[in-house]
C-alpha cells in the first residue's frame, strides 16, 4: 500500500508528528497538574490523525483556522512545541507573548490564523482568507478545522453558503468526535453523517475514517486539488473520537459504557505505527528512535517554558492597536 504511493519522508512525517501531538498533549496535561500551565487544556488525544494528516496535505503557504482543541492542528502546520508550551505556561517567550494561551495561538508565518475560543468562530475567517487568495489569483487554500458541535453554529451556514456561492478555495474539515462539549452528536443534530450538509451549499461532502492518517491525507489532498482548480470548497467529515474530556477535569459522565474502549482499540497512533511496521519500510528500532526524538524535543520544550520569565505586567497594555495615541483614552 504505502510503499508505492507515499514517500518515506511523508510517512515518517506523519508518524513523527502524530506521536508529537499525542505526547505534547500528555505533557501539557501533566504540566497543568504540576502547576506550570494555568489555563484550560482541551486535548486532542485520539484525534492525531485528522490534525496531522490534513495539515500534511497542505502547502506551507496554505492557511488554517483552528479551534479550542487546536494543539494538533498547530503542530501539524509546523508549530514549534517550545513556543506552544511557553504560551500555555503564560510566558512572554510563547507564541502570543503569553497573552493568548492555548485557545488563541497563532503564527501568521506558518499560516496559522489562530486557534479560537469561540465555537464556529473560524469559519468566516477561513472564507475571507480564501477570498483573498482567489482575488489575488494565488494557488493557496484555507482549511477550517471544526468539530461536530461547531457545524450547528450559524457561522457555518453563512460561511459555507458564501464559499459555495463564490467557489472559494476553502476546505471545511469537520473532526466529528461524536461530542460537542458534553453532549453527544446525535443529541445535537438530526443527522449523523454531517457531510450531507454540503449538498445544501452546492459542493461535495465526503466522509473519511478520521483515525486513518492516509485516508485523511488523501481526502484533504483531493479537496485541495478541487479548490485550486477553481471548483470551490469541500466538506470533509472525519469520523473520530476524543479519548479525554472536553477539557481536563471534565468528569465525562456522558459516555456510553464501552464506547471509549471500543475507540481506543482503533487508536490512530499505534494503528499507524503498526501499519508502518507491516509495510516493511520501517523496523522497530527506527520507530523507537523517532519516538525518542519526540520525547527529547518535548523535554526541551517543557524546560524552555519553565525557564522562560513571566511577562512584565506592562506588557498587558501593549499590542492592542497598531499605533499608540499618547495621552488619549483607549
Amino acid at each position: 500500500m504505502d510503499k508505492q504511493t507515499y514517500s518515506p519522508e511523508l510517512l515518517t512525517h506523519l508518524f513523527r508528528q502524530m506521536t508529537l501531538v499525542r505526547e505534547f498533549e500528555l505533557r501539557a496535561i501533566a504540566e497543568r497538574r504540576g502547576g506550570l500551565i494555568p489555563g484550560f487544556i482541551h486535548s486532542c488525544v485520539g484525534q492525531e490523525a485528522t490534525a496531522v494528516a490534513a495539515c500534511a496535505a497542505l502547502s506551507q503557504q496554505d492557511v488554517i483556522t483552528s479551534t479550542h482543541r487546536g494543539h494538533g492542528h498547530l503542530l501539524g502546520k509546523g508549530g514549534d512545541p517550545k513556543y506552544m508550551m511557553a504560551e500555555l505556561a503564560g510566558r512572554s517567550a510563547g507564541y502570543c507573548l503569553g497573552r493568548g494561551g492555548s485557545l488563541h495561538i497563532a503564527d501568521f508565518n506558518l499560516g496559522i490564523l489562530g486557534a479560537n475560543g469561540i465555537v464556529g468562530g473560524g469559519f468566516p475567517i477561513a472564507a475571507g482568507a480564501a477570498l483573498a487568495f482567489q482575488m489575488r489569483k494565488e494557488a493557496r487554500v484555507a482549511l477550517a478545522f471544526f468539530g461536530d458541535g461547531a457545524i450547528n453554529e450559524g457561522t457555518f451556514h453563512e460561511s459555507a453558503n458564501l464559499a459555495g456561492l463564490w467557489r472559494l478555495p476553502v476546505i471545511f474539515f469537520c473532526e466529528n468526535n461524536l461530542y460537542g462539549e458534553g453532549t453527544p452528536q446525535h443529541k445535537q443534530a438530526p443527522i449523523t453523517d454531517l457531510a450531507r450538509r454540503a449538498d445544501g451549499y452546492g459542493f461535495p461532502g465526503v466522509i473519511v475514517d478520521g483515525n486513518d492518517a492516509i485516508a485523511v491525507y488523501e481526502a484533504t489532498q483531493e479537496a485541495r486539488r478541487r479548490a485550486l482548480a477553481g471548483n470551490g470548497p469541500t466538506l470533509i467529515e472525519a469520523k473520530t473520537y476524543r479519548f479525554r474530556g472536553h477539557y481536563e477535569g471534565d468528569p465525562q459522565v456522558y459516555r456510553e459504557p464501552g464506547e471509549l474502549e471500543a475507540w481506543q482499540a482503533r487508536d490512530p497512533v499505534p494503528a499507524f505505527r503498526a501499519r508502518l511496521l507491516a509495510s516493511g519500510l520501517y523496523d522497530e528500532a527506527q520507530l523507537a528512535e523517532i519516538e525518542a526524538s519526540v520525547q527529547a524535543q518535548l523535554d526541551e520544550a517543557v524546560a524552555f517554558a519553565a525557564a522562560a520569565p513571566a511577562p512584565a505586567v506592562e506588557e498587558a497594555l501593549q499590542g492592542i492597536y497598531a499605533d499608540t495615541h499618547e495621552g488619549l483614552v483607549f
Partner: peptide, 22 residues
Amino acid sequence: TPISEAAIIGAGLGAALVGMRP
C-alpha cells in the same frame, strides 16, 4: 454578498489577516 453579517465581517477579517484592506 448574501445577507450574512457574520460572514461579511468575518470574511473581511480573514482577508485582512492575509494582507487585504477590505
